[in-house]
């Protein structure tokens, strides 16, 4: 029960918020400031709506990315990457955010840091394809943690 222990400890140190240990998937301060917006720390209505909104958004975006990938639409991919980057950054999902940023750069025909141009579309597409796999894994990890946090059995 290391997980339960972590939660308990965090709670006691924290005092009231009960912020769990999400490891490096989620940036605590960023996520916590969303939790701070909750009126009720038991219901967590607001943050939950944000988080679940993000789930929908992310899954929708992944689908779109797949489509764009099939179409070879780099610009769209870059835009989608940017879009999801904003959301994940807001929630503090740092890993997802970083991967989305890469996709954004790849879609803009750059390398993953966004500084070097990459002329070959196919290379970019392939990179996006790889990154997409990563980001999905990172996303599902974060999703699992978050759903656990919100006591969502699913």
């Amino acid at each position: 029960m290391p997980g339960a222990k972590d939660i308990a400890e965090t709670r006691s140190e924290e005092g009231s918020t009960g912020f769990p240990d999400f490891g490096d998937s989620i940036d605590p301060p960023t996520f916590e400031q969303i939790l701070e917006m909750d009126d009720d720390e038991d219901e967590r209505e607001f943050s939950k709506s944000i988080v679940y909104g993000f789930f929908e958004q992310a899954e929708g975006t992944f689908t779109k990315m797949e489509t764009s990938l099939a179409n070879g639409d780099l610009a769209q991919l870059s835009s989608l990457g940017h879009f999801l980057k904003g959301s994940s950054a807001t929630l503090g999902l740092t890993k997802v955010k970083d991967s989305c940023e890469k996709i954004q750069h790849f879609g803009a025909k750059k390398d993953e840091t966004g500084t070097v141009d990459e002329a070959d579309d196919q290379v970019c597409l392939q990179r996006i394809k790889d990154t997409l796999v990563d980001v999905k894994a990172e996303y599902s990890e974060a999703e699992k943690l978050l759903k656990k946090f919100y006591h969502d059995p699913s």
């Binding site: 005092g15 605590p28 301060p29 916590e32 400031q33 701070e36």
Partner: peptide
């Protein structure tokens, strides 16, 4: 328990 005043919405991050 260390319960410091929480001056900011990000209490757990000391270096905030």
């Amino acid at each position: 328990q260390r319960r410091t005043p929480r001056p900011s919405p990000r209490p757990c991050n000391g270096s905030y």
